[in-house]
């Protein structure tokens, strides 16, 4: 584990200086033992931790500093722009009154600049209940925004950074060395260039990030400052097919395998079930149509469903299920359905 060779490879991997051969070598070493695997994960976590470290704010009297700099801006006396014989020194010898005046001007400037310092004009894209929108970001990345969601970003896009509430599917353009980050509350998702889904509805108990392609780093900064001494920012790196669930109340991150086709069905506008147990099907339908389905998970666990449907409508899907299994699907209160009866072998 302390083999310096792999430590070096690991450093290269984390800092983005690894090439393909080295990466393969590192990965096969990682996979060769669980101790190596643990070391690998620990280093990733370590790297994530140091990355969360914000640059210390530097307190400095900018007005004073400017007053020092300003006289140096003019070229020295020898400059051709000043005709010979002209008496320059007086220019520098400002009276205290004029210094005061220029300071006052600076204060006015600072005030005028305040909105610019405070933050630029942000772009906000929002969707209603069943609405979806496709957003093209200035860096070429594409975002599909699911219903009841909002996406906010600075149109200048100096930093590849967006804020998300709700659910979105990202196809992030790969620009070397420039990470793309998505913040949803205190959960941050960082990537270079990949395809993945983020579900972060404020009313839901967890934030879920699922990766379709590439590598994604998800980190959680503990919410309450008083917890910070006891809780490390947690971060995980996700590979395709993996999903990070961030439990908002427990402030914990868990990684699981997820079926990406189910997670991203809303974006592909397609339902695909391949021998899927009915309770999972119900879960997918809940998610897809934004409804709740009451179903006995034990009773129906051996009812496999297979079908594929583009642009599905809720009524059609239910009609199909009823026909297949003789279910009774009742519509209760708004958007709550229950499944009962039926047969399956």
């Amino acid at each position: 584990m302390d083999n310096p060779k792999y430590l070096d490879l690991m450093s290269k991997y984390l800092s983005g200086n690894i090439d393909r051969t080295e990466r393969e070598e590192l990965m096969s070493w990682v996979e060769s033992s669980s101790a190596n695997q643990a070391f690998f994960e620990e280093m990733i976590q370590l790297w994530g931790m140091t990355g969360d470290l914000e640059e210390e704010e530097y307190e400095v009297d900018t007005l004073e500093a400017w007053a020092k700099l300003e006289p140096r801006l003019d070229p020295p006396a020898a400059s051709p722009s000043i005709s010979p014989g002209k008496i320059i020194p007086f220019y520098y010898r400002k009276s205290s009154w004029s210094i005061a005046a220029s300071l006052a001007l600076l204060v006015v400037f600072a005030w005028l600049l305040y909105p610019a310092i405070k933050g630029p004009q942000m772009m906000l894209v929002t969707t209603l209940g069943q609405e979806q929108k496709e957003v093209l970001l200035p860096d070429g990345s594409k975002v599909w925004l699911n219903g009841n969601s909002s996406l906010e970003y600075d149109p200048v896009f100096e930093e590849r950074m967006v804020k998300l509430e709700g659910e979105a599917y990202f196809d992030v353009a790969s620009i070397s060395d420039r990470t793309f980050s998505i913040s949803s509350g205190n959960v941050t998702t960082k990537v270079l260039g990949t395809v993945f889904n983020v579900r972060a509805y404020p009313e839901e108990a967890s934030v879920e990030v699922t990766v379709e392609e590439g590598l994604v780093e998800v980190s959680l900064v503990p919410e309450k400052p008083e917890n910070r001494s006891s809780l490390a920012p947690q971060s995980v790196r996700l590979q395709p097919g993996k999903s990070a669930m961030v439990d908002k109340t427990a402030q914990k991150v868990a990684v699981s395998e997820e079926d990406i086709t189910i997670v991203t069905a809303w974006q592909k506008k397609k339902l695909i079930f391949d021998d899927e147990p009915m309770p999972n099907v119900a879960k997918t339908l809940e998610r897809y149509f934004g409804i709740s389905i009451e179903i006995d998970p034990v009773k129906y666990k051996d009812c496999p469903v297979t079908f594929e449907k583009d642009n599905p409508e809720l009524e059609d899907v239910f009609a199909l299920l009823e026909a297949l299994f003789d279910y009774r699907i009742d519509k209760g209160d708004e958007k709550i359905y229950s499944i009962a009866g039926g047969v399956c072998d």
Partner: peptide, 17 residues
């Protein structure tokens, strides 16, 4: 001056690191 106002502290912070 505008640029200075906006970025002086940031430049200091970067050097201070």
């Amino acid at each position: 001056k505008d640029l200075f106002q906006l970025h002086h502290a940031g430049v200091c912070a970067a050097i201070f690191r």
